[in-house]
Amino acid sequence: MVNAHFSTKIPEEMSGWRLDKALAELFPDYSRARLQKWIKDGFVRVNAMPLRGKDKVQGGEDIEIIAQAEEEVTWEGQDLPILKILYEDKDIIVVNKDAGVVVHPGAGNPDKTLVNALLNHAPELAQLPRAGIIHRIDKDTSGILVVARSLPAHTSLVEQLQAREFKREYQAIVTGMMVAGGTVDAPMDRHPVHRTKMAVVAHGKPAVTHYRVMQRFRVHTLIRAILETGRTHQIRVHLSHVHYPLVGDPVYGGRLHIPPASSPELQEALRQFKRQALHAEKLGLIHPTQDEYMEWQVPIPADMQHLINLLSQDVKEHT
């Protein structure tokens, strides 16, 4: 059993929401069923009073959860070569995740994940929700993640994330030549038919992605995407929604586009790029105990850089 003690305020924009829905948004580390059980068992206090899950909140209420959270699975530490630590202290660990590395154990990936490697390095993470993982990166996306190493650090980082105070910048290669940067402000949720996919839906959760052009190629563009929110598959879905899908994206990418009269090497590279061309390049946050802003940046991985080099060469050959 792991003690769960969290407190926060209901944001004003959640006025009119059911309590259980608001808590599911505010505490994404726990399933909605788990939160509903805590509400039913009286472990949730709203302005120091118990409420029902279906009761509506008005915004501004103080929320406190004091409960015993049963570990849903037993995750074991494993000595794996996948753990690349950029920074660590007693409160946080910042890692650079390679493409192809799964973050959490789950169906189809019971072990050999980033969490298994983290638990081997820092066994105390077993006492934290989701082993201290604050935010997720898809298996085939590379880049930076921060991990909380203590419960106070976890609480601070979750609050920063909910308040949209993390700085998260990505590089991506998209299909299509963008004229200029912009913002996609489009709510997201599960696809109404294909439940393993996410989609832009009218009554989804707020989702905002900013993007700007870094380099244009003949039929592709290298962009920098900045997350204001952090929905599952957000960049992938948003860019596909505005008709600039990520190169190599097996779910949202659409059909392959190859520049006309391009070199066999570029054609082969585009055909063989089997993951979304997305890299979490930069992460910034307020350190949970030192109260100072910290930022990390990692270079784009070799497979994306190789593709960028070939696309750049293709432009030179056709100008």
Rank of each mutant, 00 (worst) to 15 (best):
Gly42Ile: 13
Glu64Lys: 02
Arg130Tyr: 00
Gln68Met: 08
Gly59Leu: 07
Trp38Tyr: 05
Ala99Met: 07
His121Lys: 15
Asp79Gly: 04
Lys84Thr: 11
Asp62His: 09
Leu83Phe: 13
Ala126Thr: 11
Glu61Leu: 08
Pro105Met: 01
Ala126Gln: 08
Asn116Ser: 03
Ile65Glu: 01
Asp41Ile: 05
Tyr87Val: 04
Val102Thr: 15
Asn96Pro: 09
Tyr87Pro: 00
Pro105Glu: 05
Val115Phe: 14
Arg130Val: 12
Lys112Asp: 14
Gly100Tyr: 13
Glu88Asp: 05
Leu125Ser: 11
Lys97Thr: 03
Leu83Lys: 12
Glu64Gln: 08
Glu70Gly: 04
Ile82Gly: 02
Val44Tyr: 00
Thr113Asn: 07
Leu128Ile: 14
Ala99Lys: 10
Glu76Asn: 11
Glu124Tyr: 01
Pro123Glu: 08
Gly132Val: 13
Leu114Met: 05
Asp91Gln: 15
Gly100Ile: 15
Leu35Asn: 02
Phe27Ile: 14
Arg18Trp: 11
Val73Arg: 12
Ala22Cys: 07
Ile65Phe: 00
Ala131Asn: 10
Arg52Gly: 01
Gly106Ala: 10
Leu114Asp: 03
Gly16Glu: 12
Arg32Phe: 12
Asn116Trp: 01
Gln68Asp: 07
Ile92Cys: 10
Gly60Thr: 09
Asp55Thr: 04
Val57Met: 06
Arg32Asp: 03
Met14Ala: 03
Gly16Ser: 02
Met14Trp: 14
Asp41Arg: 04
Pro105Ile: 06
Thr74Trp: 12
Asp41Lys: 14
Glu88Tyr: 13
Pro123Gln: 04
His121Val: 07
Tyr87Asn: 00
Asp20Ala: 13
Pro129Trp: 07
Ile82Leu: 14
Val103Pro: 00
Ile82Asn: 02
